[in-house]
């Protein structure tokens, strides 16, 4: 007895075939979703107790990153400035502004200002600023155009694939050390060649490859081994 109509043959085949697609799409979707700002919070500005503007202080006033992030060149941690650093200037500038009241309150009482972390790696990952700075990785390669951020957001996903993209081919990103703090650095191009040690470069790869040798970078196998970042 024929219970099912013959057309169910086609439907069944379509279902089996379609399932593959549905599974693939779900898989792709979940991977993409995992990378999306919903999960990584990339490019989402975080609220802060004081609306501190890097745009204003860095681009507007020309203050170097190291004035506030004093340990970035020498330690793993870049350092968030203590209240005293703000008061260096704000003891006199905008000293009555209500916006800055939390800063003054913290200075008076000695209680820490609690900033919301923006870039936050999981605790099972080891990261170190000083090595990146000293080997010529610019702040903006990882943190984006900080000098144009009225409120701080994380620019990169900070996921493992992002770290590895660079560790597998650091020459794509390296720049001369003295340009690390320059938020407007542009990679050399034929329009804007860069000169280093008397040699002219018109593309990033040749400059990067030379910098890899100049700064004695370790081998790619070494810096992509799991124990470099998971120790």
């Amino acid at each position: 007895m024929q219970i099912f109509h013959r057309s169910t043959n086609t439907i069944s085949r379509a279902t089996i075939f379609g399932a593959v697609f549905i599974i693939a799409i779900l898989l792709w979707g979940s991977i993409q979703w995992q990378r999306s700002p919903y999960v990584t919070y990339a490019k989402v500005a975080r609220p802060q107790p004081v609306p501190f503007s890097h745009q204003h202080h860095v681009a507007g006033l020309g203050i170097d990153c190291r004035y506030c992030h004093t340990s970035v060149e020498t330690s793993s941690f870049a350092g968030i400035p203590p209240t005293k650093t703000c008061m260096n200037c704000h003891s006199q500038i905008w000293s009555g502004a209500p916006m800055l009241e939390p800063v003054r309150e913290s200075f008076r009482s000695g209680k820490s200002l609690v900033w919301n972390r923006v870039n936050d790696l999981p605790d099972f990952v080891y990261f170190n600023h000083s090595i990146h700075i000293n080997k010529g990785v610019g702040c903006d390669t990882c943190h984006g155009p900080v000098d144009r951020m009225p409120l701080m957001f994380n620019y990169a996903s900070l996921q493992m694939e992002w770290c590895l993209d660079c560790h597998r081919a650091p020459e794509k990103y390296l720049r001369p050390r003295e340009q690390v703090f320059n938020m407007r650095y542009e990679q050399p191009s034929s329009d804007k060649p860069a000169t280093l040690d008397g040699k002219q470069y018109t593309d990033q790869l040749s400059l990067g490859t030379d910098l890899v040798h100049k700064y004695n970078l370790r081998s790619v196998a070494d810096i992509t081994s799991c124990s470099t970042c998971h120790r």
């Binding site: 170097d64 990153c65 050390r177 703090f181």
Partner: peptide, 13 residues
Amino acid sequence: FGEPGSGATPTPT
């Protein structure tokens, strides 16, 4: 000099 407002303090060579 670096571009004004870039946040850079050029390192002397």
